[in-house]
Design a protein around this nucleic acid. Sequence first.
DNA 1: TTTTTTTATATTCAATTAACACATATATTT
DNA 2: AAATATATGTGTTAATTGAATATAAAAAAA
Lengths: 233, 233
Amino acid sequence: MEATLPKFDSIFSIDCVIFGFEAGELKILLIERNEEPFKDWLALPGYFVEQNESIDDGAKRILHELTGLHNLPIKQLHTFGEVNRHPQGRVITVAYLALIRIMGQKELTPITHYAKKAFWHPVKDLPKLAFDHTEIFQTAFRRVRKRLNYQPIAFDLLPEKFTLTQLQSLYEIILDKKLDKRNFRKKMLSYGFLKELSEKQKGVSYRAAKLYKFDRRKYNKIFQAELAMEGGS
Amino acid sequence: MEATLPKFDSIFSIDCVIFGFEAGELKILLIERNEEPFKDWLALPGYFVEQNESIDDGAKRILHELTGLHNLPIKQLHTFGEVNRHPQGRVITVAYLALIRIMGQKELTPITHYAKKAFWHPVKDLPKLAFDHTEIFQTAFRRVRKRLNYQPIAFDLLPEKFTLTQLQSLYEIILDKKLDKRNFRKKMLSYGFLKELSEKQKGVSYRAAKLYKFDRRKYNKIFQAELAMEGGS
DNA sequence: TTTTTTTATATTCAATTAACACATATATTT
DNA sequence: AAATATATGTGTTAATTGAATATAAAAAAA
């Protein structure tokens, strides 16, 4: 566990691209490295996989150790295997992706000393990252952008209760284009998986908007019905 | 290169799911293994990556060595990293996927002795494969099925000149459902990337159908135009 | 009470998709 | 040469979805 590479056994690593949404901005989780190479650089949270853990388990462990966050719903993104992507030797990294809700400002506290700190950084104006992490991030962002069109991933980023305007603005940020308010609301509501609450937004200096919740149970029903229709055999 | 695992350095492997279409059937490339473990079993073409090659390059090399096929247009599919997926130790495998045209019955001839032979096997009635290769195949097939709906991958499988009926039946096989002939043809032709040839089908004992070609240049034009429209910024 | 700001809502038109049946061409058989 | 068998090739309508567009109502602040 020192700054040099371990012997050339099981040189797989994991790197995680974790998206969050806070203060109207899309952000990702970064760490400041405390180890060579790229000491003091910003990087995606990542480290080596142990021999006795699956890569999925390893990804969860590493993320926890570097950020203090537990058991995030990560999914595999892509594996990066260029020969010289790591300056000290051959390291193949499996990138993982998650979209999560940034909770109240709980501090992110690395448990290991490989990271000096962990923090949320806006996706806009991302600095140059260690290794090929900029490329990994871009792959992740492209994936998210595509997936937003056919999966309900926006609700993983929003607070539990949200207004339609907040939802729309998240779509606009990720897709990087303006959407028509009337059509957006009509379409979203037509799916039938948004539950209108009796509560309203608070603390705004203008007309308060209704709050909504994402009803995952209903979504699954609808989605499974579709699958069954298309599935055949 | 013996039957035991190499020392525990660089234990990444590659496995390839290569789809083809022949005699009206969807098939994949299999090898018969000539090495323990799983000697004599059927398996996806796969082997270990060298330390000095990228995983993409490794995949091409391995596929060539095991089947004699050159430079296939493979793309990464998914990485499988369960701890016990290989009985002799920790091996993480990166699966690759390609869809190709099965040429005239050129023999598939393994160059290495790791495989006794390589051959096309129908996707229907696939036997139990070595390692977790059945699971890898299923992941690949699901991916192909989804992708068929928004990518022109059918033309990678068909011969250069094909009839609309052949095209439709390939769709029906992959999606495992019947499609309406009139709607299918109307839609396909409406895209504008199919080029009608003056030739006709030969050797059939009924009215011969027109032959078509996929015009990739036109497809790219259309597709890029769409991307530009959606892309924003 | 007036102003400011944002929420909330409907209609029309165009485009796409889904459902549906029969005449024509060609090779084969008689 | 005529009849038969088989797959090709084609259009219309109805239903659904997507795109475009403007204004009144609610709430807080001045």
